[in-house]
Design a protein around this nucleic acid. Sequence first.
DNA 1: AAGTGGTCTAGACCACGAT
DNA 2: TCGTGGTCTAGACCACTTA
Lengths: 246, 246
Amino acid sequence: MPAYQRIAAEYRNKIASGALRPGDRLPTEQEVAHAYTVARQTVRQGLATLVAEGLIVAQRPHGYFVRQREHMVYRPQAESRPQPASPEMDRYFQQISSEGRKPSQTIEISLVPASPEIAQRLDVPEGQTVVARRRVRSINGEPVNTNDTHFPLDAVKDSDIMSPEDIPQGTNQRLAELGFAQVRAIDEFFIRMPTPEEVHRLDLAAGTPVALHIVTGYTAEGRPVRCTLNVLPGDRHVIVYEREWE
Amino acid sequence: MPAYQRIAAEYRNKIASGALRPGDRLPTEQEVAHAYTVARQTVRQGLATLVAEGLIVAQRPHGYFVRQREHMVYRPQAESRPQPASPEMDRYFQQISSEGRKPSQTIEISLVPASPEIAQRLDVPEGQTVVARRRVRSINGEPVNTNDTHFPLDAVKDSDIMSPEDIPQGTNQRLAELGFAQVRAIDEFFIRMPTPEEVHRLDLAAGTPVALHIVTGYTAEGRPVRCTLNVLPGDRHVIVYEREWE
DNA sequence: AAGTGGTCTAGACCACGAT
DNA sequence: TCGTGGTCTAGACCACTTA
């Protein structure tokens, strides 16, 4: 086995076994190089492996540190099924609930040409102008996820959905008041590495994959009236659904 | 901007714009090094960035190639809600349905001590013996995902769930016949990079994240009787749910 | 000023799969 | 045998943060 893989394996095992705990610092590159009698570049290759696996993070000039994941519960069903139905679910939320955090968000409204993904799901021609309501949601000032909702222009024009302010009752409720109540939605999840733009917008560490959650909402007539793209960093979320047999 | 980032950006843009299409080959490291007048290691660093992003893959000794993703539809609701309810959903499956593929699977049964994750969800002491039914599901001989279901030993002992063979009607049906019909389930999804063991078992390319899908099934009495860990490679799946307003 | 990781070079040899 | 990417070295200089 190559030297860099042996180095990666050593620290991977130490992290898995708990010998190194989240927040702990690793030895410096030079110290590892001496310990293994290899060049510094070889050490860097080994540690880069663990960075790509999301196990450690380099914080210059402090050193390498073991990462931690904190999973906020992300529950797509919340908007269509406000109360959890089962006692198991209540228990789940009790265990993983968050306390004493300060949520905040930024909102931008823009008119944009529909990308292929949006156009297909909203059933409009590619490039047609749609309304985009882009949000970054944060907790304690740190970005947690993004939420970019797209509406057909004719559905929401002249409404307050187009103003870049919080809509307390929610855009779904406002959309319903405009005559476009949603009765059905399709959720899709794509798992991939983030784009550089997403890395910047969400301040992602290397080795952090994301889930792209696409929601398409339909009226009773079967018309799609909303397409939301949520970007969920893997180190900050657990996605939860509740299901019953029919 | 460092040279290796310029190199990464060039090919990232070419892939995003379609100038390089899935399956296309990139120039060799040496060619890129000459083009940018940099050392080969610098080129390697740039291309390694794109490998980690999942955009390209190195196939020695053939060169670097643009990756492709083929998303099989993964529908957790299928086991509890056999028919899609909405016309939008039918359309979805028509668009992304798979044709003419040969599915296959391997099955292993073992008795294992419950890991913390399993023990917590099955509500048994950590380390208690549980039955594990481990499967690798393949299409055309290529692994697609893994499915490791765990049962409390007392629920399934002496039943054919413990034989390493296909159970045509499904383990949920057999479990129901044993008196443990499931009426409710919780789905959890964790997004992360794969472990080296998962990379090996599923033959994953570098830069491929996975979703860990954990299903916990409950009887009408609220007893958990099954905990399944599915590992879904991001380049092979789209996870789909259908939702209705209540 | 010191020490960390980040970038880069110019070489070397190796492993592997095609031809 | 050839050309590809994979591993490794011994150096160099830089950017950044903290002491």
